[in-house]
Amino acid sequence: MTRLSVLDLATVAAGRTSADALAGTTRLAQLADRLGYHRYWVAEHHNMPMVAATSPPVLIAHLGAVTRRIRLGSGGVMLPNFPPLVVAEQFAMLEALHPGRIDLGIGRAPGTDPATAAALRRGAGQLGVEDFPLHLLDLLSLLGDPRTDDGGLGARFRATPAATTAPTVWLLGSSGYSAQVAARLGLPFAFAHHFGSPHTEAALDLYRSGFTPSRVLSEPYAIVTASVIAAGDDEEAEWLAGPSRVMAHGLRTNRLGPVVTPETAQRLLADIGGPPAGLPGTQVTGTGEKVADALRELARRTAAQEVMVTSTVHDPAVAERTLELLAAAWGLSPEPAVEDRAG
């Protein structure tokens, strides 16, 4: 059975605060854990008014303390922003705190504008994207998986003094380049289909055709992401998807702001003549059964072993209801209620 997981951007809604957004993420992760979703990833974005998730390791540590069984990870850490040793130490510590539950998803884009990226790196010339493969090899070696003749940084440094397990390293991407790097290194690969890319199948074909077995993975393993909203009926789901489509337009026109209400979204979309072409915001809407069917078809078409869903909404209760409806339609195994565990 295809696994089902969650990606959370910790979006900030109009009229609410970053604290509200992170409290919503906490509740959503706990719900996903109880419902039987396989993993829960949080993203990294900087200097964006609609995203509170600036530090995945900090947020993952918090979520690990309030969940029981779900895997937790980054979707992802943008490696050009940080020295590999820093990332390795952070995730080695997370793995020590929550052994067997930590994923380190790595991206090669900065996840922000050039000025913010330069501020993060304390200089525009440091840790450029062009050096990504070398920094990735160093990161792998620091986590006990050397890929160079001299062992990389792992030959001289330790990410943690006495590790017994290591986080699972994933490569994230939205292009054929990332797919080929993941294949060459024998890493699991997550494709950002929720970006609306038309190249999902081509990238995954590159990944599978070029895959080289490694000490961490014997055969290809792929996740595809999708932006979804499930509701009681199709009309309600479409209405609730309005805020994501306004955000998509804001990203295209560089007019960024908090996630608006469905009522405000309807007015704004009418002003611009409807949802922006090529940037659908929410890709799949409808009842739980309709969304589940669409995701199963996506998994079939892409041959992905796992589908990861994300929802851009103004009200966190909409994201929670989406996970509940989708879990029921997918046939996930929820954790027994507290009063039933003794039996």
Rank of each mutant, 00 (worst) to 15 (best):
residue 285 T to D: 11
residue 274 G to C: 12
residue 337 A to R: 14
residue 260 V to K: 09
residue 235 E to A: 14
residue 269 L to R: 10
residue 94 L to G: 09
residue 126 Q to P: 00
residue 190 A to N: 07
residue 248 A to S: 13
residue 267 R to D: 09
residue 198 P to R: 02
residue 259 V to N: 10
residue 304 A to E: 04
residue 125 G to Q: 13
residue 152 G to D: 02
residue 5 S to K: 01
residue 31 L to T: 15
residue 59 L to D: 14
residue 281 G to E: 08
residue 330 W to L: 07
residue 243 P to D: 01
residue 220 P to E: 07
residue 233 D to K: 07
residue 88 A to D: 15
residue 196 G to I: 01
residue 239 W to Y: 15
residue 203 A to I: 11
residue 88 A to R: 09
residue 229 I to S: 05
residue 83 P to Y: 03
residue 26 T to I: 04
residue 103 D to W: 01
residue 15 G to C: 12
residue 296 R to T: 02
residue 269 L to V: 04
residue 162 A to D: 15
residue 259 V to W: 06
residue 86 V to G: 13
residue 276 P to K: 05
residue 204 L to R: 04
residue 332 L to W: 14
residue 64 G to L: 00
residue 52 A to Y: 14
residue 80 P to G: 02
residue 85 L to C: 05
residue 168 T to G: 11
residue 319 A to H: 06
residue 156 R to V: 00
residue 262 P to M: 07
residue 333 S to K: 09
residue 226 A to I: 10
residue 260 V to W: 11
residue 161 P to K: 05
residue 276 P to M: 02
residue 175 S to N: 14
residue 146 P to I: 02
residue 39 R to G: 11
residue 6 V to R: 02
residue 185 L to V: 00
residue 54 T to N: 12
residue 118 A to Q: 11
residue 249 H to E: 06
residue 43 A to R: 02
residue 8 D to I: 01
residue 21 A to L: 04
residue 50 M to Q: 10
residue 260 V to H: 09
residue 126 Q to V: 04
residue 128 G to L: 05
residue 194 H to Y: 12
residue 267 R to Y: 01
residue 100 G to N: 05
residue 178 S to Q: 05
residue 42 V to D: 14
residue 63 L to C: 07
residue 79 L to A: 03
residue 313 V to N: 05
residue 311 S to M: 06
residue 77 V to R: 03
residue 73 G to F: 04
residue 170 W to C: 14
residue 289 E to L: 01
residue 181 V to A: 03
residue 110 P to Q: 02
residue 242 G to Y: 10
residue 316 P to S: 06
residue 6 V to C: 06
residue 21 A to P: 13
residue 236 E to F: 06
residue 65 A to T: 04
residue 7 L to V: 14
residue 214 S to I: 00
residue 267 R to T: 05
residue 24 G to R: 06
residue 5 S to R: 06
residue 44 E to L: 01
residue 317 A to D: 15
residue 214 S to A: 01
residue 206 L to N: 10
residue 340 D to V: 06
residue 225 T to P: 12
residue 89 E to F: 03
residue 201 E to H: 03
residue 68 R to A: 11
residue 16 R to L: 10
residue 107 G to R: 00
residue 119 A to P: 15
residue 259 V to I: 14
residue 33 D to Y: 02
residue 287 T to A: 06
residue 131 D to Q: 04
residue 312 T to V: 15
residue 12 V to M: 01
residue 168 T to Y: 11
residue 223 I to P: 09
residue 194 H to C: 00
residue 338 V to G: 07
residue 156 R to L: 05
residue 240 L to Q: 15
residue 39 R to S: 12
